[in-house]
Structures are given as C-alpha cells and as structure tokens.
Amino acid sequence: MGKKIVSFGILIALLLVTILYSAATGSIKVGLIELAQGLIWGGNESVEVVRDLRLPRLFVAMLAGAALAVSGVLLQAVMRNPLADAGVIGISSGAGLVSLLMVTIFPALYFWMPLFSFLGGALACFLVYSLSWRSGLSPLRLILVGVAVNATFTGLGQSFNYRGSYAVTSVNQAISSIFTLKTWSDVEIMALYGGIGLVLAMLLGSWCNMLVLQDKTAKSLGIPVTKARLIVSAIAVLLASVATAVGGLIAFVGLLVPHIARLFIGSDHKWLLPFSALGGAWLILAADTLGRTLLAPTEIPASIVMTVIGGPFLIIMLRRSERVHGH
C-alpha cells in the first residue's frame, strides 16, 4: 500500500511540474507568477494568447492521453493480452477512417466527429474479435488480426491524401496528432465524452480483475462474462475513439502506460486504472511539449514521438513474452 501511494504522489508531482513547464514554455515565454496574475486579473496580452491557444492544447493532450491509457488497460483485460492497444489492433485507425469519411461526405456534420469515431472504432473492434475468434481468444492471433485490420484502415485513410481536396486536407489536419489550434470547445468535447468514459472505467475495476481469469473461473465467481466483456469493450472503444476524434491518431499509449504502471502498483485494476489515467495524461503532455519545444519553431507531432518510443518498447515486450512462454 505504501509503495502505491508513493508512486501516485510522485506521478502527480511529475504531472504538475510538466503542466507548469508546458504552460510557461513556447514561442511566447511567460513566467509562472505573471501567468497566474494574468489568468486571475486579466489585462496581459501574452497571457491571453497562452490562455486561448496553449492551455486548450495542454488539456486536450492530457485528456487524450488519459483516455488512450485507460482504453489500453480495458482492452488488455478483455482480451487477456498485455499487447492489446487501441492503436496496435486498429481501433484508433478505424475511428479515424470513419470520421474522416463521414466528415468528407457531410462537412456540415463536423461536430459529430466523436460519434463517427465511436462507430469506426466499434467496427474495427468487431472485426478484430470476429476474425480472431476460433473456439476462444488466442492472444497471438488477436494481435496479428489487429495489426492487419490496423494496416487496412490506415491505408484507406492515407488514400484520401491523394485526392487533392482542400476539405480532405483540412479534415486530415483535424485528426492528426499535432495539438495546434485546439480550442476550449475541443476541451469541452474531450472532457464530456472522455470524462464519462473514464468515470465508467473506474467503476469496472472488479470486472476487469475477473475478466483476466479464464471464462469458467470468472463465471463460477458470478460474473456475467459475455455481458462484462461487451460493456468493457464498448467503454474502451469510446475512450479511444474520442481521443482519436479530438486528439488525433496516437499509437502505443495504451501499450506503454499500463505495462509500466503494473511495475509500480501491481495488477489490481482498482489501482491500475486511475494510475494509468494519470500516467497517460503525463506521457502525452510530455510528448507534445517535447515535440513543440525540441526543434522550435518546427513542431514534431506527438504521434511521431510516441512511435519512436513505442516501437522499440513493443519489440522488447514481444521478446519478453517469448521468453516467458519458452519459445
């Protein structure tokens, strides 16, 4: 218990320091005292720019990171596979493709992007389940099918780039993972849908603890396995889809964060879910801040930073899982 509380305390302190650094650093540099005074009393043009441009970006990055990390925890519980992640198995790319397709065809429905993203994510999740199910869930088959589904949806999404349409270009920018020009309305959408998903996820810790067991064992403990799997999957898809609709396509968050979180606080989902939410918020905020400041004024998208970190991490995890299973 003591180690868990200390781990939470360190992570919260790390997140707060990163928030303050991210808010004060950029093309317009503002001291923390000046920032606080400007936010409270107003009348400072630099602080107003920070408030209207940098702070929404900061909140969207944190909320998207929290949503993707918690989505990863839920998917790993449902699929009994530590390699499951919305980005790896195609849920994020499915969400991005359907929202891109619908908004391209019906531009007036731009503000319904979270709904379209959810439908796309649900379609990808259904395809992964149905194509990988063969008298049970095989962790390896599930990942291989997920990678194939992800590649298909990603390829279809990228094919839109070659149509030369301004509308398509602008929508592509909307679902890219550069958090530039995010507004407080984006924060509201992310906070509403993402907040609902996060609260529901926190209430499902005991179900997640049961779902990682074999189905027969979970049923003997009184858990409605099929119903629980559907509900947990739906919440995971909601979180990943909203994060994709507002924050863009970012892979590996749901893979990295839960794995590292288990090293610090164990596998009890009642602790793992809130810790992963904080860890995901910090990771994406740190990735976005790094991408924004490293080669300023040029920006590196958070998705590229995460790919550079996550790719080698996935290889290490695959090698470890092979060693564990003795292959």
Rank of each mutant, 00 (worst) to 15 (best):
T180G: 12
M210C: 11
N150F: 05
M62E: 03
I12E: 01
G164R: 05
W207R: 08
H327G: 11
S276Y: 02
S93R: 07
K29R: 04
G96I: 08
C208F: 10
R51V: 06
V50G: 01
G310N: 04
G31S: 00
S46Y: 00
D288E: 06
A191S: 03
A151G: 13
F264G: 03
V253Y: 05
R51Y: 04
G121L: 14
S93I: 12
G205T: 11
I284N: 03
L255G: 06
S92Q: 12
I223E: 11
I10D: 02
T293A: 02
K270F: 06
F252P: 02
V171G: 14
R54C: 01
L295V: 14
F116V: 10
A296D: 02
G38H: 01
L115T: 08
T104W: 15
L119V: 08
L272W: 06
L200D: 03
F160A: 08
L285N: 00
A191F: 11
G280E: 00
F153N: 13
E299V: 13
I250W: 04
I223D: 08
L263C: 07
A95G: 10
L213N: 13
T104V: 13
Y166K: 15
I19H: 02
V246L: 13
N172T: 10
A124N: 15
L75V: 06
V237W: 04
L239F: 06
A84P: 10
I12K: 01
I175A: 08
A67S: 14
F160Y: 12
I12S: 09
L278Y: 01
